[in-house]
Design a binder for these strands. Structure first.
Lengths: 329, 329
DNA sequence: AACCCTCTTGTTAACGATAACAATTTCTCA
DNA sequence: TGAGAAATTGTTATCGTTAACAAGAGGGTT
């Protein structure tokens, strides 16, 4: 910067003003400085700027396995939205799920200077700890639950699950099993509740639940067990990956879909439309979730008042070929 | 830091020494300082440290769509390996594929102070530009091609593709079509070449190629076209997602797999084992790729000599139920 | 006891930017 | 034409840390 100042014959402060688009700089000197900047290939030092202003223009994203479709999609959206607004994104993607690790991750992001943190899909065990964090650092939870101090953005999991199950009920299914996500995931809990609620509303029993781990493998295994009860005519799976595994188990059992058995997923992953048969599922607009979360976080960072502590994005039932009327007995 | 110094009755420099584990500090003062740090909840300011040392301990990851299985997996591995070694990871995930955007992304990461950049799956058009970059900033390319100035880490795409096709040839297939990735992706090119090479080695013609965009949808559409030629008995798809789409098209055409038609994918995504039938595919060890890439980049950052400019990780053919002998005519 | 060496601590000056205020120039209008 | 206001520029201090060097304290040797 001093080089630029010397070359263009002004003070370093004037260079700073040009770089930051301050209003009161004459056009003539601005051009002079701009030219020198270009010739010298000057680029402002981020660290120095951070130190002087106290702003880092960085936000942290803390997520469980970003290999999963949901987190990956949200991450992508958050990152993109952030970049458009001039924020860099620092990522910490956790392998394990211990609350201590989550807290350590947040601390790390804080030390890095993140102005705020977006926490993707945290698990219920962590909530107590999270509340402590938010005092130090603005935070937004995605696909989790808002807490006393941290607002959240999520697709309405409960509603999505409920409408998925209602769709099956309308088709005439009476005995609908559920493959849930890991119970310590908040979104898994909400989907489970949605399933229960839909059944209760229709005076049906919610008897069969198997817990999976979101993986196709777990869906496959769960379905094997579920199919031992031949009175069950359909499954609502808490995500598409597990539904995919379920599909295989159903095929292996020789049950035609949708004639003999119906299946609904959750996520609307790109692959789901191209399964055989196309999977009826709940579409989640992760892009919207990411955008909203970032907007919310920035408000928090700027100290603005929040009118909503919890933003929900509407899920959408996508009916494809994996659901039909239950077989006559 | 000054507070800590005051509280523990030493100079700020001594505090700095304690924080950085410098050798010549007496045990007594170390404990005093440590205590003060704990009581005051002191945490070093990253920005100031960066400014003073010139090191940011940050590496950048630039990737195309991190929603895809490959990039997402690599990102996860890189991020994890980096964090273990004390490096923060800044992510830029691109929506579009223009070289200008890639260069802008790298420039952004450089301005942020990244000590090095890992570029995931760049496309061929960008290579000229990339070479320019590496002069300013250490870089490693993943799933691309090493260049004059940038080393690379990749699963051996060519070998993987070749062994996939050889597997089909061994089963007796004579007419093997290929669904390629976008031609401007380097990995798509290499897989295409592998397919060609295997066929050439067996004196078979490499006639039918359809270009997809990695999505299930494109695999589905490509397969519809391919199936119009009834002499084709198998497809090698450049990734699992497109194979999944292909599967649907094959099913719709009423061709039983593997009795009437064989299909091979590439990636070994978690879902692929649970398709019906299980997909024969090429496994890529993305974890290993990420680790190796990070190790390579750190060598570069430290100015160490590289013994290899190009690291390849061995692919592995996973035979499942989607491949079998071609039907007798 | 004087000297030198080593170990520990302190002092001062960077790092590269912005903030706050001071100084200068230019403009406006009576 | 001159005074005051506005616009433009410059000067100095500051952000929180590490680097480089200086100074002091303690111990052993002769």
């Amino acid at each position: 910067m001093l080089d630029v100042a010397k070359k263009s014959g002004v003070s370093h402060q004037t260079v700073s003003r040009v770089v930051n688009n301050h209003p009161n700089v004459s056009e003539k000197t601005r051009q002079k400085v701009l030219l020198a900047i270009k010739n010298l290939g000057y680029r402002p030092n981020h660290a120095a700027r951070m130190l002087a202003t106290g702003k880092t223009s960085t936000i942290g994203v803390l997520s469980h396995d970003t290999t999963l479709f949901g987190p990956a999609s949200v991450l992508h959206a958050v990152q993109f939205a952030g970049r458009e607004l001039g924020y860099a994104v620092s990522l910490i993607s956790l392998k394990s799920i211990y609350p201590e690790e989550v807290m350590a991750g947040i601390q790390e992001l804080a030390d890095l200077g993140a102005e705020g943190v977006i926490i993707i899909a945290p698990q219920s065990a962590e909530y107590k700890m999270l509340n402590r964090t938010s005092r130090e650092l603005p935070a937004v939870i995605i696909e989790g639950r808002d807490t006393a101090t941290i607002p959240s953005v999520e697709v309405d999991q409960f509603l999505g699950a409920k409408s998925a199950v209602e769709h099956l009920i309308q088709l005439g299914h009476k005995n609908i099993a559920h493959i849930s996500g890991p119970k310590n995931w908040f979104s898994a809990q909400r989907r489970l509740e949605g399933w229960k609620a839909a059944l209760a509303d229709a005076n049906l029993k919610s008897s069969t639940v198997k817990e999976g781990d979101w993986s196709p493998r777990s869906g496959y295994l769960a379905t094997k067990e579920i199919l031992m009860d031949r009175t069950i005519t359909s499954i609502f799976s808490a995500n598409d990956d597990m539904a995919l595994g379920a599909l295989k188990a159903i095929n292996e059992a020789g049950l035609a879909i949708p004639e003999k058995f119906s299946l609904v997923g959750f996520d609307d992953a790109p692959a789901s439309a191209y399964l055989t048969p196309g999977l009826t599922t709940i579409h989640q607009d992760f892009d919207e979730v990411g955008k909203q979360a970032l907007a919310l976080l920035l408000k928090l960072v700027r100290g603005e008042k929040l009118n909503k502590r919890r933003i929900t994005v509407a899920p959408e039932l996508i009916i494809r070929a994996s659901t039909g009327k239950p077989p006559r007995r």
